[in-house]
Design a protein around this nucleic acid. Structure first.
Length: 431
RNA sequence: GGAAGGGUGACCGAGUGGUCGAUGGUGAUAGUCUUGAAAACUAUUGAGCCCGCAAGGGUUCCGUGGGUUCGAAUCCCACCCCUUCCGCCA
């Protein structure tokens, strides 16, 4: 959530920026509730002070007169507390709806149409035959079986088989070894002219279910459209490793010398995909669960924007090693998430479909998530500050498989293994 | 899932109704002493919120949420987590 003090000081700005993000929230109402809340809170605290002073002197059973005084105070406190409760409920509900403020370079826009392509990389391969889609190749060669998956699980599920599985495991190892190498991190930092330490990413296998309280605090729980809930437990299936990664340090104070903390997490992501009927029904680019390598960084505010750019640099490095053409997109105010201050997508080129398809996202949240999660850091002078959080896709594995199939296909339906993956596949050159 | 024990500050650990936000120790920081270091000694050392320009004052927090009471770390209820044993299991 946003800092209430900041909202009090900049109500018009916050109202305007919320509108730019297509978020309907009434800042005037919020500030009225805030004022009511503070008046009642002050009242309660004054009464409590009286009560504390009254009981502080007692060593045994107090006089009847004092007990009466205490009873009266107790009743008064209870009455005001009862008034405060619904106001606080409404207040927090509204406050949590207020989105993060986008950075100045985020384009203002109402739909994804206003996203800006900032870079295009790679030469699209010229095929001397008509390139096929990944599902034509995958289904004809028995590497993808959605029909049987539909019988068992319904739409948007698949069996992935054979060489594609080898390819997926090779991708995992390739990414882990790349991001785990501080020399490569240093190279990416230099190429992007960033002012950062060249610390390697630590691999993590995070929990894939989490409770309502931490999930809500991430600002990412969207029960209707995205998140699956377990019926008999207070548990949700994570829609991204980001969600159980960013909440990892909830309620903690991190030592400044330990920052930045960089993680590369592998997990399955589960998504209901409600409201996407008819979209991406072919192939394996929109399944109810998919596997993903996700970067998560905790840093101080001064270096957080550079960390965001590092994560994008890492995405590009990996995609370039795979030699898949892509474009980089700076998302507009309406298309970045509510907790985001900035968001960048990378779209990989799919020659079988002749489209760029979203494969990566990089999200910079400033201190918006950490305020709710209470993730702080102690500066050298002892003052406590909120950390800044960054997350970004390292690789969405099934979408990358689709891109490899379509970009590396041969006329007879074979798939050439990208060179950077061969060391992880026993030198195999095609599948 | 069943039985028993337990969750207190960065860490260890006292505290079973009344100045307890919490004894003591460790660690950390500063100082004294020392050529320097160690040791010893002294002091400081949790977080959130509210009021205030500030100085400062107040309030809340002892796993979480309720309750009893004039007063709760301490009593009651529910839940969560940890440990051990049994059961089940990869």
């Amino acid at each position: 959530m946003l800092d209430i003090q900041f909202i009090r000081d900049n109500p018009d700005l916050v109202q305007e920026k919320s509108k730019q993000k297509n978020v309907i929230v009434n800042i005037v109402d919020l500030l009225k509730l805030d004022e009511k809340r503070r008046i009642l809170q002050t009242n309660i605290e004054e009464l409590r002070e009286q009560r504390n002073k009254l009981t502080a002197g007692f060593t045994g059973k107090p006089s009847t007169e004092d007990i009466e005084k205490g009873s009266k105070l107790k009743a008064e406190i209870a009455e005001i507390e009862a008034q405060l409760l619904p106001i606080e409920t409404d207040y927090f509900k509204l406050l949590k709806q207020v989105p993060n403020i986008p950075l100045d370079d985020v384009p203002v826009g109402e739909t994804e149409e206003q996203n800006k392509v900032t870079k295009t990389w790679g030469d699209k391969k010229e095929f001397d035959f008509k390139p096929k889609t990944h599902w034509e190749i995958g289904e004809s060669r028995g590497l993808i079986d959605k029909e049987r998956a539909a019988k068992i699980s319904g739409a948007r599920f698949t069996y992935i088989k054979g060489g594609l599985v080898e390819l997926e495991f090779a991708l995992i190892q390739f990414v882990m070894s790349t991001l785990g190498d501080s020399n490569i991190i240093e190279q990416i930092i230099k190429e992007n002219q960033l002012n950062l330490v060249s610390k390697a990413f630590i691999p993590v296998l995070p929990p894939m279910m989490m409770r309502t309280t931490p999930y809500t605090a991430t600002g990412r729980l969207k029960a209707e459209e995205i998140t699956y809930k377990l019926a008999d437990d207070d548990l949700w299936l994570i829609a991204s490793a980001e969600h159980s990664m960013v909440s990892m340090y909830m309620n903690e104070i991190l030592e400044r010398q330990d920052l930045p903390i960089r993680y590369i997490a592998y997990s399955t992501s589960f998504r209901r995909e409600a409201g996407t009927y008819g979209k991406d029904t072919n192939g394996i680019t929109r399944m109810h669960h998919f596997n993903k390598l996700e970067m998560e960084v905790f840093s101080d505010g001064s270096s957080a924007l550079d960390e965001h750019l590092l994560l994008i640099g890492a995405q590009e490095y990996i995609t370039q090693k795979l030699a898949i053409p892509y474009r980089v997109i700076l998302k507009c105010t309406a298309d970045i998430g509510s907790p985001n201050a900035r968001g960048v997508d990378i779209d990989m080129w799919l020659p079988g479909q002749e489209v760029y398809k979203e494969s990566h996202t990089a999200d910079y949240m400033t201190d918006y998530q950490s305020r709710d999660l209470k993730i702080r850091t102690r500066a050298q002078d002892g003052t406590i500050e909120l950390v800044h959080t960054n997350d970004a896709t390292a690789l969405a594995l099934e979408r990358t498989l689709a891109a490899i199939i379509e970009n590396y296909q041969t006329k007879d339906g074979q798939i050439i293994v990208p060179e950077c993956l061969r060391p992880f596949m026993g030198g195999k050159e095609q599948i």
